[in-house]
Simulated assay, not measured.
Amino acid sequence: MLGYVPQEVLFNIFLNLPTKTLVLCSCVSKSWRSVIANPSFISTHLNQSLTCNRKLLILKRYYGNRSKQEVRFSLHLDTETLDLYQELKFPFVNQNGDSKIVGICNGLVCFLGLDLLLWNPSIQRAVAVPRTSEIVTIYGVPDYYALGFGFDSCTNDYKVVRLLYFEVKTPFNYKRSPKVEVYEVRTGSWRAIKIKAPRCEIVKSGWTQAFVNGAIHWVAYREIGRGYRCFVLRFDIVEECFSSIALPERLVNYSPYDLKVAVLGGALSIMLCGWYCFETYMSSVWVLQNYDIPESWTKLVSFDRSQELGMVLGIRENGEMLMESKRGEVVLYKPEIQLMKGLGIYGAEDTFYLNTYVESLALLNEGKGISKKVAD
């Protein structure tokens, strides 16, 4: 047949096409879709995107007045001026200002609002993660919970991890370990894991998580007398087991509400927030230089409250920091000379979220397309 093109040739041609074009090509014929929707192609396409010279950042922020705020997502080039690459349409209605991004991995955004959602902005496909599970059915609604999100390289699947806390009402206020369950995109359901989590707590509403080195990390703590003993709780997403990483001694007794875990410059990091006149400010940033050596925690930079700087959003390869100012603007901060430069990107204070981003075909097989009516 003159019109026949071998699949290996199509494979190589499709690898050089952008994600949106690939979605359209997958609708042309069954043979084309069989190539594009093949897990091997999706994985190869992702690996190629990860090695691409063009580095992208995804930015989330809210804008509007206090009575009505709308969320805004955009992609930016990783340049000194954070040049706009593409505005993204946030397709989910009825999401309020209390929503948060759990994490971003391989182009997938795990979003917690009124619903728990996985969203691929590149191809406008999404998965709604059910709130109910066998544990919830048996024990009822938890008093609070924490979430983590990452990629299992062994099974080539994305997972959401949920730590469910059920407070025990006894005269001695004895606290149990959280119950833990994992949601897998491929199965579309939650399952409890057998390995018991250590007896510790995570901040009820202000928790953060970081996925790096194949593991999810949270700031956890145990109450000691009237104080705290903080550490990093680690969950290996492949082995599905827990361990801990000690914090530098200067941080272990801080309130866990003042500690935020993040990935900055590809390394596990801890951000320490200070308080002044009932407002928070960035105090210092610590980076784990060698992941396998807890003693390698190093204070990267300290801040003074007079600098009017909010959270650290990211670190560029040259060491420059992207931060939020108290005026609600993204700024470029050069710590070695303490120079702050506004980038003209504004939003509501304390609503910014920035992360690296790669365009991918994740959820092409498992997700549902988002209708134009909802997206517009």
Score class of each variant (00 low, 15 high):
271 M>L: 03
284 S>V: 09
285 V>W: 07
277 C>L: 14
268 L>R: 06
304 D>L: 07
278 F>Q: 15
305 R>A: 12
299 K>P: 07
273 C>G: 11
308 E>K: 14
271 M>Q: 08
294 P>C: 10
292 D>G: 14
278 F>R: 15
291 Y>R: 10
317 E>S: 13
275 W>D: 11
315 I>G: 09
271 M>K: 00
271 M>T: 07
310 G>Q: 09
268 L>M: 00
318 N>D: 13
291 Y>Q: 02
271 M>N: 04
294 P>Y: 06
297 W>K: 06
277 C>I: 11
312 V>G: 03
278 F>N: 15
284 S>T: 08
285 V>Y: 10
299 K>I: 06
260 K>P: 09
272 L>P: 04
281 Y>C: 05
294 P>L: 03
259 L>N: 09
299 K>V: 13
270 I>T: 01
275 W>Q: 03
279 E>N: 08
267 A>Y: 04
318 N>L: 02
280 T>W: 11
274 G>K: 00
266 G>T: 01
291 Y>F: 15
309 L>M: 10
287 V>L: 08
302 S>A: 11
262 A>M: 05
260 K>Q: 09
259 L>C: 01
317 E>K: 14
313 L>F: 09
271 M>C: 10
259 L>Y: 07
296 S>D: 03
263 V>H: 03
266 G>M: 00
270 I>E: 07
287 V>T: 07
292 D>Y: 11
283 S>C: 15
269 S>G: 00
269 S>T: 04
275 W>P: 11
289 Q>K: 10
307 Q>P: 11
303 F>N: 04
310 G>R: 01
271 M>S: 02
318 N>H: 09
312 V>C: 10
288 L>Q: 07
309 L>Q: 09
262 A>G: 03
294 P>D: 07
261 V>L: 00
305 R>G: 12
309 L>V: 00
306 S>Y: 15
263 V>M: 01
269 S>P: 05
264 L>V: 02
313 L>H: 02
279 E>W: 12
271 M>W: 01
309 L>H: 08
293 I>T: 03
268 L>C: 01
288 L>E: 10
284 S>R: 11
267 A>E: 02
297 W>A: 04
277 C>K: 11
306 S>P: 15
308 E>T: 14
267 A>I: 05
285 V>C: 14
269 S>V: 00
299 K>T: 08
264 L>I: 07
260 K>W: 04
305 R>I: 15
292 D>T: 05
316 R>K: 00
280 T>Y: 08
302 S>F: 13
296 S>P: 06
294 P>N: 09
315 I>C: 10
262 A>C: 05
